[in-house]
Protein backbone atom coordinates (compact mmCIF):
# COMPACT_ATOMS: atom_id res chain seq x y z
CA UNK A 1 0.00 0.00 0.00
CA UNK A 2 2.85 2.33 0.84
CA UNK A 3 4.39 1.78 -2.58
CA UNK A 4 1.10 2.78 -4.24
CA UNK A 5 1.11 6.00 -2.24
CA UNK A 6 4.76 6.55 -3.08
CA UNK A 7 4.19 5.95 -6.77
CA UNK A 8 1.31 8.42 -6.90
CA UNK A 9 3.46 10.93 -5.03
CA UNK A 10 6.25 10.56 -7.59
CA UNK A 11 3.87 10.78 -10.57
CA UNK A 12 2.19 13.89 -9.19
CA UNK A 13 5.47 15.61 -8.45
CA UNK A 14 6.90 14.72 -11.84
CA UNK A 15 3.92 15.94 -13.86
CA UNK A 16 2.79 18.83 -11.68
CA UNK A 17 4.81 21.52 -13.36
CA UNK A 18 4.02 20.73 -17.00
CA UNK A 19 0.31 20.52 -16.13
CA UNK A 20 0.27 23.84 -14.30
CA UNK A 21 1.94 25.49 -17.28
CA UNK A 22 -0.55 23.90 -19.68
CA UNK A 23 -3.62 25.03 -17.75
CA UNK A 24 -2.25 28.53 -17.29
CA UNK A 25 -1.79 28.91 -21.02
CA UNK A 26 -5.24 27.49 -21.72
CA UNK A 27 -6.93 29.82 -19.25
CA UNK A 28 -4.98 32.75 -20.60
CA UNK A 29 -6.37 31.97 -24.06
CA UNK A 30 -9.93 31.70 -22.69
CA UNK A 31 -9.58 35.06 -20.99
CA UNK A 32 -8.13 36.57 -24.13
CA UNK A 33 -11.10 35.24 -26.11
CA UNK A 34 -13.51 36.93 -23.72
CA UNK A 35 -11.58 40.08 -24.12
CA UNK A 36 -11.64 39.99 -27.89
CA UNK A 37 -15.29 39.05 -27.85
CA UNK A 38 -16.10 42.12 -25.79
CA UNK A 39 -14.73 44.36 -28.53
CA UNK A 40 -15.36 42.42 -31.74
CA UNK A 41 -18.19 40.11 -30.67
CA UNK A 42 -20.74 41.82 -32.87
CA UNK A 43 -18.81 40.86 -36.05
CA UNK A 44 -17.79 37.27 -35.41
CA UNK A 45 -19.07 34.20 -33.66
CA UNK A 46 -16.72 32.47 -31.26
CA UNK A 47 -16.41 28.75 -31.03
CA UNK A 48 -14.53 27.64 -27.97
CA UNK A 49 -13.18 24.26 -27.20
CA UNK A 50 -11.50 23.46 -23.95
CA UNK A 51 -11.50 19.69 -24.15
CA UNK A 52 -9.64 19.06 -27.39
CA UNK A 53 -6.39 20.80 -26.36
CA UNK A 54 -6.59 18.82 -23.12
CA UNK A 55 -6.92 15.55 -25.05
CA UNK A 56 -3.87 16.45 -27.09
CA UNK A 57 -1.89 17.47 -24.03
CA UNK A 58 -2.77 14.26 -22.21
CA UNK A 59 -1.70 12.24 -25.23
CA UNK A 60 1.74 13.84 -25.15
CA UNK A 61 1.91 13.16 -21.44
CA UNK A 62 1.34 9.45 -21.87
CA UNK A 63 3.72 9.14 -24.79
CA UNK A 64 6.86 9.56 -22.68
CA UNK A 65 5.83 8.16 -19.35
CA UNK A 66 7.45 4.76 -19.74
CA UNK A 67 10.97 6.01 -20.52
CA UNK A 68 10.65 8.56 -17.77
CA UNK A 69 9.35 6.41 -14.95
CA UNK A 70 9.67 2.64 -15.59
CA UNK A 71 13.46 2.40 -14.92
CA UNK A 72 13.03 4.59 -11.86
CA UNK A 73 10.30 2.49 -10.29
CA UNK A 74 11.98 -0.80 -11.13
CA UNK A 75 15.06 0.47 -9.28
CA UNK A 76 12.85 1.21 -6.31
CA UNK A 77 11.87 -2.46 -6.30
CA UNK A 78 8.41 -2.51 -7.88
CA UNK A 79 7.43 -5.46 -10.02
CA UNK A 80 6.33 -4.69 -13.55
CA UNK A 81 2.74 -5.59 -12.67
CA UNK A 82 2.75 -3.22 -9.72
CA UNK A 83 4.09 -0.53 -12.00
CA UNK A 84 1.31 -1.08 -14.54
CA UNK A 85 -1.32 -0.96 -11.78
CA UNK A 86 0.09 2.23 -10.35
CA UNK A 87 0.25 3.89 -13.76
CA UNK A 88 -3.37 2.88 -14.36
CA UNK A 89 -4.40 4.35 -11.04
CA UNK A 90 -2.50 7.56 -11.75
CA UNK A 91 -4.17 7.81 -15.17
CA UNK A 92 -7.62 7.44 -13.64
CA UNK A 93 -6.98 10.09 -11.01
CA UNK A 94 -5.39 12.41 -13.53
CA UNK A 95 -8.27 11.97 -16.01
CA UNK A 96 -10.80 12.70 -13.29
CA UNK A 97 -8.96 15.87 -12.38
CA UNK A 98 -8.72 16.92 -16.04
CA UNK A 99 -12.38 16.18 -16.68
CA UNK A 100 -13.40 18.06 -13.55
CA UNK A 101 -11.48 21.15 -14.61
CA UNK A 102 -12.96 20.97 -18.12
CA UNK A 103 -16.50 20.67 -16.79
CA UNK A 104 -15.96 23.55 -14.34
CA UNK A 105 -14.52 25.69 -17.10
CA UNK A 106 -17.55 25.00 -19.28
CA UNK A 107 -19.86 26.05 -16.47
CA UNK A 108 -17.81 29.13 -15.84
CA UNK A 109 -17.79 30.13 -19.50
CA UNK A 110 -21.53 29.76 -19.85
CA UNK A 111 -22.02 31.61 -16.57
CA UNK A 112 -19.88 34.52 -17.70
CA UNK A 113 -21.45 34.55 -21.19
CA UNK A 114 -24.91 34.74 -19.64
CA UNK A 115 -23.78 37.40 -17.22
CA UNK A 116 -22.26 39.59 -19.90
CA UNK A 117 -24.89 38.56 -22.42
CA UNK A 118 -22.67 37.09 -25.13
CA UNK A 119 -24.88 35.20 -27.52
CA UNK A 120 -22.22 34.34 -30.00
CA UNK A 121 -20.01 32.25 -27.75
CA UNK A 122 -20.30 28.57 -28.67
CA UNK A 123 -18.63 25.76 -26.79
CA UNK A 124 -17.59 22.73 -28.79
CA UNK A 125 -17.49 19.42 -27.01
CA UNK A 126 -17.59 15.81 -28.29
CA UNK A 127 -20.61 15.21 -26.09
CA UNK A 128 -22.78 17.30 -28.41
CA UNK A 129 -22.40 14.75 -31.19
CA UNK A 130 -24.42 12.26 -29.23
CA UNK A 131 -26.61 14.27 -26.97
CA UNK A 132 -27.97 17.73 -26.53
CA UNK A 133 -27.62 17.72 -22.80
CA UNK A 134 -24.80 19.66 -21.24
CA UNK A 135 -25.13 18.30 -17.75
CA UNK A 136 -22.06 18.67 -15.55
CA UNK A 137 -21.81 15.00 -14.73
CA UNK A 138 -22.31 13.77 -18.26
CA UNK A 139 -19.57 16.10 -19.55
CA UNK A 140 -17.31 14.94 -16.79
CA UNK A 141 -18.03 11.26 -17.38
CA UNK A 142 -17.37 11.42 -21.10
CA UNK A 143 -14.26 13.55 -20.64
CA UNK A 144 -12.85 11.21 -18.02
CA UNK A 145 -13.23 8.28 -20.36
CA UNK A 146 -11.84 10.15 -23.34
CA UNK A 147 -8.86 11.46 -21.40
CA UNK A 148 -8.19 8.00 -20.08
CA UNK A 149 -8.32 6.68 -23.63
CA UNK A 150 -5.85 9.38 -24.74
CA UNK A 151 -3.44 8.52 -21.94
CA UNK A 152 -3.70 4.79 -22.39
CA UNK A 153 -3.37 4.79 -26.17
CA UNK A 154 -0.33 7.04 -26.05
CA UNK A 155 1.10 4.72 -23.40
CA UNK A 156 0.50 1.85 -25.81
CA UNK A 157 2.47 3.75 -28.45
CA UNK A 158 5.22 4.33 -25.89
CA UNK A 159 5.24 0.62 -25.08
CA UNK A 160 5.66 -0.27 -28.75
CA UNK A 161 8.57 2.14 -29.14
CA UNK A 162 10.09 0.97 -25.85
CA UNK A 163 9.93 -2.71 -26.65
CA UNK A 164 10.54 -2.71 -30.39
CA UNK A 165 12.73 0.34 -30.92
CA UNK A 166 12.29 3.17 -33.40
CA UNK A 167 11.76 0.85 -36.36
CA UNK A 168 9.05 -1.14 -34.61
CA UNK A 169 7.41 2.05 -33.36
CA UNK A 170 7.13 3.68 -36.74
CA UNK A 171 5.94 0.47 -38.37
CA UNK A 172 3.18 0.36 -35.78
CA UNK A 173 2.23 3.96 -36.54
CA UNK A 174 2.18 3.05 -40.24
CA UNK A 175 -0.19 0.13 -39.66
CA UNK A 176 -2.43 2.31 -37.50
CA UNK A 177 -2.53 4.97 -40.23
CA UNK A 178 -3.82 2.31 -42.64
CA UNK A 179 -7.02 1.91 -40.64
CA UNK A 180 -8.66 5.26 -41.54
CA UNK A 181 -7.51 4.83 -45.15
CA UNK A 182 -9.12 1.39 -45.29
CA UNK A 183 -12.26 2.87 -43.79
CA UNK A 184 -12.48 5.36 -46.61
CA UNK A 185 -11.65 2.78 -49.29
CA UNK A 186 -14.16 0.23 -48.15
CA UNK A 187 -16.74 2.80 -47.10
CA UNK A 188 -16.90 1.64 -43.50
CA UNK A 189 -17.10 5.12 -42.10
CA UNK A 190 -20.71 5.83 -42.98
CA UNK A 191 -22.20 2.80 -41.16
CA UNK A 192 -19.88 3.67 -38.29
CA UNK A 193 -21.17 7.22 -38.11
CA UNK A 194 -24.75 5.95 -38.29
CA UNK A 195 -24.15 3.58 -35.39
CA UNK A 196 -22.46 6.33 -33.42
CA UNK A 197 -25.29 8.78 -33.89
CA UNK A 198 -27.84 6.15 -32.90
CA UNK A 199 -25.92 5.04 -29.84
CA UNK A 200 -26.82 6.38 -26.44
CA UNK A 201 -24.26 8.19 -24.32
CA UNK A 202 -24.12 5.22 -21.99
CA UNK A 203 -23.36 2.85 -24.85
CA UNK A 204 -20.60 5.11 -26.10
CA UNK A 205 -19.04 5.40 -22.68
CA UNK A 206 -19.16 1.69 -22.04
CA UNK A 207 -17.67 0.79 -25.42
CA UNK A 208 -14.86 3.32 -24.85
CA UNK A 209 -14.27 1.74 -21.45
CA UNK A 210 -14.11 -1.65 -23.12
CA UNK A 211 -11.45 -0.35 -25.50
CA UNK A 212 -9.48 1.07 -22.59
CA UNK A 213 -9.55 -2.25 -20.78
CA UNK A 214 -8.41 -4.15 -23.86
CA UNK A 215 -5.50 -1.76 -24.45
CA UNK A 216 -4.61 -1.95 -20.78
CA UNK A 217 -4.44 -5.75 -20.91
CA UNK A 218 -2.23 -5.58 -24.01
CA UNK A 219 0.09 -3.14 -22.22
CA UNK A 220 0.30 -5.30 -19.10
CA UNK A 221 1.28 -8.38 -21.04
CA UNK A 222 3.81 -6.46 -23.16
CA UNK A 223 5.54 -5.16 -20.05
CA UNK A 224 5.57 -8.40 -18.08
CA UNK A 225 9.27 -8.97 -18.78
CA UNK A 226 10.32 -5.53 -19.94
CA UNK A 227 13.90 -4.47 -19.16
CA UNK A 228 14.65 -1.21 -17.37
CA UNK A 229 16.00 0.33 -20.51
CA UNK A 230 14.35 0.88 -23.90
CA UNK A 231 15.57 -1.23 -26.81
Amino acid sequence: MKTVQGSLYVFFQSYKKSNIIFWCILFAIVLLSFFIDTFFGQYITFAMTISIPVYIFYSTMGAKILNKTLPYFLKLGLSRMQYVWNVGLFFIVWSLIGAFIIACTHKMISFVSNLLDYQNMVIIHPLFFFSSSDSFFLTMAIDTVLLLLCLISSLLLNVVFYRFGTLGGYSFIGVMALIPIMMVIFGWYSPLLVTLSKASTLQIISSLLGMIIIIYIVISSALRKAPAMPS
Binding site: G6, S7, Y9, V10, S14, K16, K17, T69, P71, Y72
Partner: peptide, 19 residues
Protein backbone atom coordinates in the same frame (compact mmCIF):
# COMPACT_ATOMS: atom_id res chain seq x y z
CA UNK B 1 19.23 7.99 -13.80
CA UNK B 2 18.41 7.23 -10.19
CA UNK B 3 16.08 10.18 -9.71
CA UNK B 4 13.25 12.00 -11.44
CA UNK B 5 14.60 15.15 -13.08
CA UNK B 6 11.58 17.28 -12.19
CA UNK B 7 11.68 16.52 -8.49
CA UNK B 8 13.63 18.36 -5.81
CA UNK B 9 16.15 16.65 -3.55
CA UNK B 10 13.69 16.82 -0.66
CA UNK B 11 10.97 15.19 -2.78
CA UNK B 12 13.34 12.44 -3.94
CA UNK B 13 14.19 11.60 -0.37
CA UNK B 14 10.54 11.73 0.65
CA UNK B 15 9.67 9.33 -2.17
CA UNK B 16 12.35 6.91 -0.95
CA UNK B 17 10.53 6.66 2.38
CA UNK B 18 7.66 4.86 0.67
CA UNK B 19 9.84 2.28 -1.03
Amino acid sequence: GNFQEDMTIAQCLKANRFF
